[in-house]
Simulated scan of single mutants.
Amino acid sequence: MTEQQRRSGVVLVVATAAAVLVMTAAHFGGYRINLTPSEPLGLWRIVPLVRPAAVNDLIFICPPETAEMREAKARGYLRFGLCPAGVAPLIKTVIARAGQYVEIGASVRVDGREVSSSGLAPRDGKGRPLAPFPSGTVPPGHVFLHSSFPGSYDSRYFGPLPVSGILGRAQEVLTYAR
């Protein structure tokens, strides 16, 4: 091995270690990179939520390991991440809380009011059928989530998620439009 190859190897090791250190610090500092079109792409921060989640809160949430989420992971809707189910947290807006009635038809209605940009897709981008979640009252300890992005995989399809999975509010740091 030449001196130049050895130096190149040392530089590569140091650069890799620095990148891992920065990513680890960012992760534990509450920063996440959003690579999905559900919200603007880029750098986001998880801000602690010191009150119960409210309607219109944009949140980070870890989905539970349910049959719907395992299927979503198998279909490629969910990215790998550090949530207990092995997926990345979702960034979604709370549109209903426990006790509110969600009606799912051609679009979504919460307590009789239509949610904008909530039309349902019969099939995903690869032509596979999508089944809507049945209408009903959001159970205690759960929230119903939505994204206005037309191809978003949200509670329209997987139903309410437990509030115990909420990591915090989603705050844009450095993003660009979807």
Rank of each mutant, 00 (worst) to 15 (best):
G136K: 09
P64D: 13
F80G: 12
R97Q: 02
I91F: 07
A98V: 06
Q4V: 04
G141S: 12
D154T: 04
F144L: 03
G76S: 03
L120I: 02
K73Q: 15
R6P: 12
R109N: 07
P89V: 03
A26N: 10
F158N: 05
E39R: 11
H146Q: 09
N56L: 03
V108P: 01
S117Q: 12
K126M: 01
T175H: 11
C62H: 14
N34H: 13
R178E: 05
G105Q: 04
A19R: 06
S152K: 10
F80Y: 08
S8L: 14
F28S: 13
P134I: 02
A53R: 14
A177V: 15
G125P: 12
G112W: 04
N34C: 08
V10I: 13
G168W: 12
L130D: 09
G168Y: 10
R7E: 14
L145S: 04
R6M: 12
P64I: 04
S155H: 04
P150Y: 12
L167H: 02
F28Y: 09
V14K: 08
A15C: 13
R178H: 06
E3M: 06
R169A: 13
V55I: 14
V10S: 06
P40K: 08
A15F: 12
P129T: 00
P89M: 01
A177L: 15
G125C: 11
I166F: 05
H142E: 01
T66V: 06
V13M: 12
E65M: 12
F158W: 03
M1K: 02
E103Q: 09
I46E: 03
L120C: 03
S164Y: 09
G42C: 06
V20H: 10
R123S: 11
S155Y: 07
L35F: 14
I91M: 08
M69K: 11
G168M: 13
D124G: 00
P162G: 15
P162I: 14
Y176D: 13
A88H: 05
